[in-house]
């Protein structure tokens, strides 16, 4: 893992921490961006961590591009020494898999899909070697996920599955992107799951829908009053399968401002996680289920 530095025009420094996605690359990207933020370098206007890379926006009238490059390079060694430990949130996201709304949408765009005869879930289950859609859903909702990037559109989380690489779900995107995706669709593309924060175009496979808004520009949803975007890079997500009745109840509770997302403050240690992934995930699951 050797970071690669390149400029995005005269206003962005772009750092690819690693070509391939891994939790190690994400942690390195996150720790480098945190150190840059702590140093509050004059002329740096914005720091954006992504999955295995990050971008630093700067004002070249204030800091010379090469000066910034040297500053960020010097952080690399410091970041390597930092403990891979993160104080973060563990969040339960209810998901109504195989819901009627994403089903209607995926049928409408069937000719853009690899498998026009099946559904997105049937296709994903088959190519990942699961005997049934139910078994696939159990895998998708069975392990936690790291929010490794927030973006594309406002507040959309990219989530990386916290399991051994050989167990990771991988699904290609649609052959041609759809022009429509229901709001709050739980999607999948490459090795990332996502939640579409708004309705719109999209190319990720559609697995289900969450009743829990994650972006509210009007800030009327109780838990989005302080800030309109719910997710932050570094959040840990656990999906909880729900049925239609619970979906409807939750939608109503959200509308009445009576819904509170289930959130636990946790300390995540990458070394302990890598030493015993299964055991670590079981502990995380225990924390979200315990009161």
């Amino acid at each position: 893992m050797k970071p690669r530095y390149t400029f995005g025009g005269d206003e962005h420094l772009f750092v690819e921490v690693d070509e391939e996605m891994s939790l190690d690359a994400f942690f390195k990207s996150l720790s480098m961006t945190r150190i840059i933020a702590e140093r509050s370098v004059e002329g740096v206007t914005e720091i954006c961590p992504a999955n295995a890379s990050f971008q630093v926006k700067f004002d070249p009238d204030v800091i010379a591009p090469d000066t910034l490059l040297e500053e960020v390079r010097s952080i690399e060694a410091e970041a390597a020494k930092a403990d891979p430990v993160l104080q973060t949130r563990l969040i339960e996201i209810p998901v109504f898999y195989q819901d009627p709304w994403t089903h209607e949408t995926l049928m409408r765009f069937r000719e853009r899909h690899q498998d026009p005869q099946g559904t997105d879930l049937e296709y994903a289950a088959r190519i990942n070697g699961y005997p049934s859609v139910e078994a696939f859903i159990a895998a998708h909702s069975g392990s936690p996920w790291f929010v490794s990037m927030v973006g594309f559109v406002a507040g959309l989380p990219f989530m990386y599955q916290m399991v051994e690489r050989e167990r990771q779900i991988q699904v290609p995107k649609y052959l041609r992107p759809r022009t429509d995706t229901p709001k709050l669709t739980v999607g999948y593309g490459g090795c990332f799951s996502c939640i579409y924060s708004v309705r719109g175009a999209g190319g990720y496979q559609m697995f289900g829908i969450t009743p829990m808004p994650i972006f509210d520009p009007d800030q009327k949803t109780n838990y989005l009053e302080d800030f309109m975007v719910f997710f932050r890079p570094g959040d840990i997500v656990k999906f909880k399968p729900i049925d239609r009745a619970e979906y409807d109840r939750t939608v109503e509770a959200v509308a009445n401002n009576a819904f509170t997302p289930k959130i636990r403050e946790v300390e995540f240690d990458l070394r302990a996680f890598n030493a015993d992934i299964k055991g670590y995930n079981a502990r995380l699951e225990g924390m979200i289920n315990g009161d």
Binding site: G8, G9, E11, H12, F14, E16, D18, E19, E20, M21, S22, C48, A50, N51, A52, S53, F54, Q55, K57, M149, G151, F152, F158, R165, P172, K173, G189, G190, C191, F192
Partner: peptide
């Protein structure tokens, strides 16, 4: 193609897009 990048040669692991890129 690196892990997580997708199968098309024009794909990368999803990253930030600089303004003007």
């Amino acid at each position: 193609q690196p892990f997580g990048a997708g199968s098309d040669p024009s794909n990368i692991v999803d990253s930030c897009y600089p303004y003007g890129s």
